[in-house]
Design a protein around this nucleic acid. Sequence first.
DNA 1: ACGAGAACCTGTTTGC
DNA 2: TGCAAACAGGTTCTCG
Length: 277
Amino acid sequence: MPELPEVETVRRGLAPVIEGRTFARVVQRRTTLRVPMPENFVARMTGRRVISIGRRAKYLLWTLDNGEVMVVHLGMSGRMSILSPPDKDGNGRHDHVVFHMDDGVRVVFTDPRRFGLITLVAENDLEDHRLFCHLGPEPLGNAFDGGVLSSVLRGRKSPIKTTLLDQKVVVGLGNIYVCEALFRAGISPRRSAATVAGKRADRLVPHIRDVLTEAIEAGGSSLRDYAGADGELGYFQNAHAVYGREGEPCPGCACGGGVQRIVQSGRSTFFCAARQR
DNA sequence: ACGAGAACCTGTTTGC
DNA sequence: TGCAAACAGGTTCTCG
């Protein structure tokens, strides 16, 4: 479910409410998500204060006052939501962890498919941790530009669509925003990655930045179960030019063929064959 | 070393 | 109506 804009939206919803608060009680209902939960998770969390909530790639990073970081990934169907008093109880079938803060605020981690994960990592070991050591640059950071992208794309024979989904190339993009960025850049998802290196990469980078930035401003894309931490739905799905729009006319293009859906590496790709070359 | 495909899960939609 | 297949925002492992 969540790509960078959705995770960032969750982070922005959580941070002002949670930063500075202490875990008064933690209720853990599952020992395993995508990977096993940390040993003694409840004991290690209880009494800790949250210094800050950050993000790297699609991971939420809760920095704690003991030098550890709670790492959260939402997988395909995960949510982290703040329950306000009259709200639901956090006892749903897929509510795996409930965090009770010292001011009465409750945060629930819900994930029907359990592709998400929660783990604890020492802050100093974060960069070298197996989850992080292979990650590419942040697409909205200074370390990402056409030259950097080109250097990774050169020598890659696979289609640009699947290459951009590889978090070693650049982080944060998922199926929606790859399709949207390639559409905006007029680049065919089937084109081999190596042929995008150079001028096409220079053209693509600003579109990646723009589509992610616009999506964050819109609170992300709410298709099925995604919502921000406050339960608000994003509305960027209304701005999707191609994703999920098979058969619809391609916006701003009189090609007549409309948006096509193909499958690449087992996942749907949406694009306009006339505009994207 | 690289890339395609499978696997991990549950829920919802689609098609016969 | 009913059941089976297809599909879903991600990551990681295996195999060729």
